[in-house]
């Protein structure tokens, strides 16, 4: 029997993977992918919670609305983010995090 717990563990594992990726990877594009993974993990948790909180015989759709908005926002963020990363690449010919460490102090 698959319970809510199963989904939440998967979601947390996905979130942890995203977090770990941000810490480990140096390629900004890959880091950005990991961020998307974190958002998806949150979506999974939201959908799971909404499915297991059945009110009046139906899942709670307000949480699913939030998931929809999250996906949209993520798409918009990706668009802007990739534009910034492309601009960075054009000026530095690199997408390594070390190319953005000019400011220190």
């Amino acid at each position: 029997m698959i319970t809510l717990n199963h989904y939440l563990i998967v979601s947390s594992a996905l979130f942890a993977l995203g977090l770990a990726g941000i810490i480990v990877r140096r390629n900004i594009l890959v880091i950005y992918m990991c961020l998307e993974m974190m958002l998806s993990a949150a979506n999974l948790a939201l959908v799971a919670f909404s499915r297991f909180r059945v009110t009046d015989g139906l899942p709670d759709y307000s949480a699913q609305a939030l998931v929809f908005f999250t996906i949209t926002v993520a798409a918009a963020e990706v668009a802007v983010g990739l534009a910034i990363i492309v601009a960075l690449y054009r000026s530095k010919q690199s997408v390594d995090v070390e190319s953005v460490t000019k400011m220190q102090g």
């Binding site: 029997m1 698959i2 319970t3 809510l4 717990n5 499915r51 297991f52 909180r53 059945v54 015989g57 139906l58 899942p59």
Partner: peptide, 9 residues
């Protein structure tokens, strides 16, 4: 929180 799947009605 019910963790067992609740059938939709």
């Amino acid at each position: 929180l019910t963790t067992l799947e609740v059938p939709l009605r």
